[in-house]
Nucleic acid binder design. Sequence first.
DNA 1: CCTTGCCTTGAAGTACACATGAAGGTTTAT
DNA 2: ATAAACCTTCATGTGTACTTCAAGGCAAGG
Lengths: 150, 150
Amino acid sequence: MNIKEASEKTGVSSAAIRYYEKESLIPAIDRTEVGNRDIDDRIIRRIRFVTQMRAAGMSIENLRRYIQLFDAQEDNTKEQKALLQEQLAVMEEKRDDLQSAIDHLNYKLNHFYDHMETTEEELRALEREHADQVAQQDDGKASDGFDMND
Amino acid sequence: MNIKEASEKTGVSSAAIRYYEKESLIPAIDRTEVGNRDIDDRIIRRIRFVTQMRAAGMSIENLRRYIQLFDAQEDNTKEQKALLQEQLAVMEEKRDDLQSAIDHLNYKLNHFYDHMETTEEELRALEREHADQVAQQDDGKASDGFDMND
DNA sequence: CCTTGCCTTGAAGTACACATGAAGGTTTAT
DNA sequence: ATAAACCTTCATGTGTACTTCAAGGCAAGG
């Protein structure tokens, strides 16, 4: 598959695919005799993975490190694990910030008056109130929590 | 409180606070007789709110729109709600992307071999497997879900 | 043969979100 | 009274993540 087809398949521009290759976010792509990129499904999946991580807010630099750790199947497992766990912590914090903003917005949508300037204390109260609402609406599912941290 | 104190209190640089004011992410700040910004707690809370949303990956432009919607307590409630719901959908998708990446990473940390190039089908399988692990580890808390969507 | 349509590399341009610098004003301390 | 330590505005610089441009190569069709 040429780069244009890959671009159409992934929604990532040809230029961006070239850029990702140059930045080692995706592996070196095989070339045809005349030097054109010949992209297979492995590359497509990598591109999709990169897109997902970028959408989640990870920088190119961090993503490159992260991918190198994934790719390295050898030695220094301890350091690797530590680095991956750092990365994980960053991502979880980001997710929690997002969740907090989502709660904020959901509350606004339900109540519809200004509460943007609440303190963190008040925010927690709002979240509890929102959790109650969700519990009422969803009847029983009152989790609201992300408990998969180590 | 002057801008330096506000900066120290929020962890946001003075330059960024000025920038936020110029971009209407925070309201116009009162000045002293000599023209210096006099920042109160209302502004501090706004700055913190902006920081949170920025950390969650919202652009300045979207954040400005979002804040204008919050600030406008008048008329066209229907349009406002629609726009807020759009914003909410974007944020939820972002959160889900992040969660998917987190699951991916957690799985890697537990298994520690390369599975970055799995298809979406396989990823779902991994997530189920990971959910099972979490259920085992946390003994009973098998939520893993974000069920607060409307 | 020449246009169309794909591709290549390398360089330069762009948008966003600030950071930094210049030039100057005010209060406080020595 | 002169320096230190704040402040102001306005302009310009910076890093990131691409996009766009320039110059050219290869293959098919009219």
